[in-house]
């Protein structure tokens, strides 16, 4: 996983709430067995149907910070939604509220999801729509999102922040505690089912 510290880029305003993962990447793209190359599936239905959709607009091409409405990433647990956003080039998503599984997936994979108040999201929308070249900085070190006239702190727990900044693999971290896992397994109740 790539390390994430500070990223400055341009914003894409997605003025919609309740963006479910079926919209982020429709199920038909989930049949693949590879881990990369999902950019063509990102918002595929909306990109195909609506010339005015934000990712179809020339002025937002190359934007890499997605600014979305509340309840982003609801629905299916498909981590392909995170992969599609990353493969397309997004480094961070800002929203007033994320669905839990999507948020967990994004922070595992190094896509920084940042919770900001609705009014800040609206200011950022207005700002990047007025000037798509507006620089937006997502600073994980200082836990702050910055744009001209905006310096908004955000919350992220110390452990996740550390893991993202170091680019650490969760599995390798857990495997340091194999003895604890083995000891726990000795204590498990004898009636618990086994599948074989």
């Amino acid at each position: 996983m790539e390390k994430f510290t500070v990223h400055t880029g341009r914003g894409a305003p997605l003025r919609a709430g309740n963006v479910d993962t079926d919209q982020i990447i429709p199920a038909v793209y989930l049949k693949r067995v590879a881990r990369t190359g999902f950019e063509d599936g990102l918002f595929a239905a909306w990109r195909a149907a609506d010339p005015e959709f934000v990712l179809n607009k020339e002025e937002f091409s190359g934007a890499d910070v997605l600014i979305a409405g509340p309840d982003f990433g609801t629905g299916s647990s498909r981590e392909h939604a995170v992969w599609a956003l990353q493969d397309y080039g997004f480094k961070a998503v800002l929203s007033p509220r994320f669905a839990d599984i999507f948020r967990g997936n994004s922070l595992k994979g190094g896509l920084l999801t940042v919770v900001l108040p609705q009014e800040v999201i609206e200011r950022l929308w207005d700002m990047v729509e007025a000037d798509p070249s507006t620089p937006i900085t997502v600073d994980l070190v200082e836990r702050e999102v910055r744009a001209p006239g905006v310096a908004e702190p955000f919350e992220i727990d110390d452990y996740t922040r550390w893991r993202l900044m170091e680019g650490l693999d969760d599995i390798a971290l857990t495997l340091r505690h194999t003895d604890d896992i083995g000891a726990f397994e000795e204590r498990r109740s004898p009636w618990l089912p086994v599948a074989q």
């Binding site: 967990g104 857990t174 495997l175």
Partner: peptide, 20 residues
Amino acid sequence: FGIGTSQVEHVLATQTLPMT
């Protein structure tokens, strides 16, 4: 609870998940 593919790999490898 439902998990993503990174966590599927984590459970396959360790039979555990780090959770808050």
